[in-house]
């Protein structure tokens, strides 16, 4: 018996209405196929338009103006690759990239673990599970901007709770937003409160693992841990892949928290790449330079996504025999 657990990587494997693309390149379409092609394109036309306007045009446009010195108020001046060579030398690019990598390296893996734990918690077969689900998901509904204000208060040494809590363990009173590393850690911590969304995706994945697998494993004498590692985790791998890629993509874009909580400080310790891009574009009106930053961000994002997909071919499990 084969259960298909589908994820992202291979939509062709999804059970769908009969048909699909047959290998073998060009061939004449039947009248019905032509009609369906027209209809299908018509139905997906909002997306096609969206792709052109929201993806293709911005990419081409960004590439174009990244070659100019462009404030948006004067005639753009051709600088060739000047913006890119400035980017390489700009100390803030180095700092903001390092900050973003630091953030991603912590927030993404921690986020995955927290989300899996939350999903397992939300999946407990206890009568009051609804309460836990609500409690664990609520912070994910809080807008990041509002959560940022909450954290400003929460970590403030004089009227926040966190310092009081740390004092119980003998940590001296410190301004956690006053040090570049601890300020970044605070922002990583904040992100974990939003793990509910990723957890929901894991939860859906968990619900689709047939109970028969666990029953069988129990009968075979496999313990809870063993079951987790040999059944739950492998069967969650499509969801893990999805959350990993969206997590990395999200980490590359982290902005709002830093904008509100720390304004990029202290000592540029929370100046993330996106923040630097925003500043260049909208605080200093250097649209050409900011576009060069955007093009590089796009490139890095795509390369990372491809690497993750490449690796995932080895680890992600779509079919399971149970």
């Amino acid at each position: 018996m084969t259960t298909t657990v589908t994820g992202l990587a291979d939509p062709a494997e999804l059970p769908g209405p009969a048909g699909g693309v047959r290998p073998g390149g060009r061939r004449r379409y039947t009248a019905r196929q032509r009609r369906n092609l027209r209809l299908g394109l018509l139905f997906i036309s909002p997306w096609i338009l969206g792709f052109l306007v929201l993806v293709a045009y911005p990419l081409v446009y960004s590439l174009g103006i990244s070659l100019f010195n462009h404030t948006g108020f004067r005639t753009p001046e051709w600088v060739g690759l000047g913006n890119y060579s400035r980017l390489v030398q700009d100390p803030l690019v180095a700092i903001s990239s390092a900050n973003t990598l630091f953030y991603a390296a912590l927030a993404v893996p921690i986020g995955l673990v927290v989300a899996v734990v939350l999903a397992l918690a939300m999946n407990r077969k206890v009568p009051e599970v609804g309460l836990y689900r609500t409690a664990l998901y609520l912070p994910s509904l809080v807008p990041v901007f509002a959560l940022s204000f909450i954290f400003i208060v929460f970590v403030n040494p004089s009227f926040g709770l966190l310092n009081q809590f740390l004092a119980l363990f003998g940590v001296p009173e410190t301004n956690l937003l006053g040090d570049p590393t601890s300020a970044k850690l605070i922002i990583v911590t904040m992100a974990q409160l939003g793990a509910g969304n990723a957890a929901l995706i894991f939860l859906a994945g968990l619900n689709n693992i047939p109970d028969s697998l666990y029953e069988a494993a129990t009968v075979d004498g496999a313990g809870t841990l063993r079951q987790f590692f040999s059944i739950t985790l492998p069967l969650l791998s499509p969801s893990i892949l999805f959350n990993l890629v969206t997590g990395v993509s999200g980490a590359l874009q982290v902005f709002t928290q830093a904008y509100i909580v720390t304004g990029g400080g202290p000592n540029n310790g929370t100046l993330f790449y996106m923040f630097h891009l925003y500043n260049s574009a909208f605080s200093y009106a250097q649209l050409g330079y900011a576009s060069a930053l955007a093009v590089v961000l796009f490139g890095v994002g795509m390369v990372l996504a491809l690497i993750i997909y490449g690796l995932s071919r080895r680890f992600v499990n779509y079919d399971v025999t149970g």
Partner: peptide, 8 residues
């Protein structure tokens, strides 16, 4: 899905 929106 994975394109960083701010690029745009």
């Amino acid at each position: 899905i994975f394109i960083p929106f701010p690029v745009a």
